[in-house]
Design a protein around this nucleic acid. Structure first.
Length: 289
DNA sequence: ACACTATCCTGCAGGC
DNA sequence: TGCCTGCAGGATAGTG
């Protein structure tokens, strides 16, 4: 499910319930997601207070009052919801989906935070808070796309000499951390760059970003900010924590729009779909060069 | 180092 | 109706 805007939307929705709350009990409905849960996972969380809920790349980080942090990744299909109703209440519409409620955090104020993940590509683990940056999962992560670190010079440096298509490099979390398939397609469209283009061809001999590449950082930031304003994209079931759907999917210009007319005024192109490294790419062959 | 694939898992849409 | 195939917002291990 989630790229940066969706994970950030989840963070903003969960924070009011989670921050300052104490975890009274953790209910594990299975012993693993993508990986087995750590030893004594539930008991190590029990009685801990949540000091802060942060995001890095596509990870949620809940800092606890015992010096550890709960790291959560939503994979492709992970989602959270807050349930304030009494346990055991009959949830007619949720019955089928409830089979994938894998983790339930019972909080001190009576609310429950429920993690649901049909495909189970998500995972949770505990890391000492001061060791997060050196952890294998985090130390290789690239820049936050909304930070000042992402600019033309950074991309020129990252892309120089690379033969791989620009789309592949934008998906590489070691360069930019937080983009995924949707927002890469949308950002390349906004920058009018073909996703098939060799990344290195966007850099001049003097190692500067060419004009097209100079447009890309702002295109990335713009699409992420627009998506954040909309509460993310709801392709299947991504919801904001209050249950409302993110609605950025209505603003897609190319993603999942194969065969549609290119939305660029005056462009007579048709959105095409190609497969790059096993994943769908959507773009306008006419105005993305 | 780099580029590309196969893979984990479930659900759903589309074709027949 | 059902059965089959392919595809889905991610990330990694493994291959040349």
């Amino acid at each position: 499910m989630p790229e940066l805007p969706e994970v950030e939307t989840v963070r903003r929705g969960l924070a009011p319930a989670l921050v300052s709350a104490t975890i009274e009990r953790v209910e594990l409905r299975r012993h693993d997601l993508r990986f087995p849960f750590p030893e004594r996972f539930a008991s190590r969380l029990q009685g801990k207070r949540v000091l802060d809920l942060r995001r890095r790349a596509k990870y949620l980080i809940a800092d606890l009052d015992d010096g550890h942090s709960l790291i959560m990744h939503l994979g492709m299909s992970g989602s959270f919801r807050i349930d304030e109703e009494t346990p055991g209440a009959f949830h007619h519409k949720r019955d089928k989906n409830a089979a994938h409620d894998h983790v339930i955090f019972h909080l001190s104020h009576g609310k429950r935070v429920i993690y649901n993940d049909p495909r189970r590509f998500g995972y949770m683990l505990l890391i000492a808070t001061h060791e997060i940056d050196e952890d294998k999962l985090f130390r290789g992560l690239g820049v936050e796309p909304l930070s000042d670190a992402l600019d033309g010079a950074f991309l020129a440096h990252a892309f120089r000499g690379r033969a791989a298509p620009v789309k592949s490099l934008l998906l590489d979390q070691r360069l930019i951390a937080g983009l995924g398939n949707i927002y890469v397609c949308e950002a390349l469209y906004r920058a009018r760059i073909s996703p098939l283009r060799a990344a290195g061809s966007l850099v001049t001999a003097s190692r500067k970003p060419k004009a097209a590449l100079a447009r890309l950082p702002q295109a990335i930031k713009d699409v992420l900010k627009d998506a954040l304003k909309a509460g993310g994209s709801s392709l299947r079931d991504h919801r904001q924590i209050d249950g409302s759907l993110g609605y950025f999917q209505h603003s897609f210009r190319v993603y999942d729009r194969e065969g549609a007319a290119c939305p660029t005024p005056g462009c007579k192109g048709t959105i095409a779909r190609v497969v790059q490294s096993g994943r769908s790419t959507f773009y306008c062959p006419r105005c993305q060069k």
